[in-house]
Every structure is written in C-alpha cells, then in structure tokens.
C-alpha cells in the first residue's frame, strides 16, 4: 500500500468524473467538522486543491456536510448507505478479537452504519459486509492496525465501474 493512499470524500463520483467536476474550491474541507477532509497540496496541476481524506490521520464520520455544500455536484448528496468511498478489510491475524488476544470491539462501536456495514459473527467477531461505505473510521480506531481501507478509486478501472458513487 503506497504512502499516498487517500480516500475521496463521501458521495464522490467515480474518480474521472469527480476530477472533471471538482471546482477545487475547498468548501468541503472548510465545512468538515471533523477536520478529516484536507485539500491535496503541491503543484501537480491534475490533483492540486482537490479534497482527500487520510483515515489514519482523521476519519470521515459520514455526516455528509461536504456533499451538501459541494457547489458543482462533484460530491453527490446521497444517503450514507449508498456511499462507497472504499472497502475495509480486516486482517484476522492481527485483529485482537480474531486472534483471541483481547475482547475488542472498537471498530464495531465506531462504525457509522453498524450492523449494516459491519456485523459481529457469533456476537463477538467483527465482519465487514459488502455494504461497507469505506469511511475509514474503523481503520482510524483499530488498536491493532488490523484494518485497511482500499479507496474505491483504485479498483474502478475494470471490475467495479460505478464504485465511486
């Protein structure tokens, strides 16, 4: 996984469509009350000023303020169940719960769409379903660093065409 891995804000369209619609005004970053959205820094003319989220630093809580404020509809205002920013994956060898090391439900407790995106197998073991929004909160809180979120925009080319929606 590269160092530059980042997610687009919730409701972002597919990467190509998102970039061609983003006005780079930074209103989403300014309205974000969790300070998780930051603007892409640097001088690369193709991405400078577009919003991004690094879940390791601060994760999205799916409050959807950003997609409500976006003036150019690069961020769709959609219900949080339809958000697909990425997919979370649990490394069962590292997870305290799966490794039978500790009782830990940090990820489950923080998931914004509990029991839809994340379920507890046999009432204890966290399992991520395919309804995961990929907000990255679980990655942010996981004490074992067992969860990684793969941004949808990495896998758009090919199998999942409408993944970014």
């Amino acid at each position: 996984m590269s160092v530059n891995r980042f997610l687009r804000p919730p409701g972002a369209r597919t990467e190509k469509e998102f970039l061609s619609r983003c006005l780079q005004c930074g209103q989403c970053a300014q309205v974000c009350i969790f300070d998780c959205i930051v603007m892409h820094t640097g001088f690369n003319p193709f991405v400078a000023g577009t919003p991004e989220i690094n879940p390791k630093v601060a994760a999205c809580h799916l409050c959807m303020r950003c997609s409500a404020i976006c003036p150019s509809d690069a961020l769709h205002d959609i219900p949080i169940e339809q958000v697909r920013m990425g997919f979370a994956e649990i490394d069962r060898k590292k997870c305290y719960q799966w490794a039978e090391f500790l009782l830990c439900r940090s990820c489950y407790e923080r998931c914004p769409i509990k029991w839809v995106a994340m379920k507890l197998e046999r009432g204890e073991y966290p399992v991520i379903t395919d309804k995961c929004a990929g907000c990255g909160l679980c990655e942010h809180v996981c004490p074992a660093k067992a969860i990684t979120v793969t941004p949808t925009r990495y896998v758009e080319k090919g199998r999942k065409k409408d993944g970014g929606k």
């Binding site: 970039l19 780079q24 970053a29 300014q30 003319p45 193709f46 400078a48 000023g49």
Partner: peptide, 23 residues
C-alpha cells in the same frame, strides 16, 4: 482536471491561506 484553474493566481492566494489555517 480543469487545468486552467491552476493558472489563477487569486485562487492560489486564497488557497495558500486555506492550506495554512485549515490544515
């Protein structure tokens, strides 16, 4: 990406403070 946006110096001026105080 709308590349002409990067030629906007007023935008870069405002963006500097967005970066600086925002993040």
């Amino acid at each position: 990406t709308p590349v002409l946006n990067q030629l906007s110096l007023p935008a870069w001026y405002t963006r500097f403070f967005q970066y600086f105080f925002g993040q």
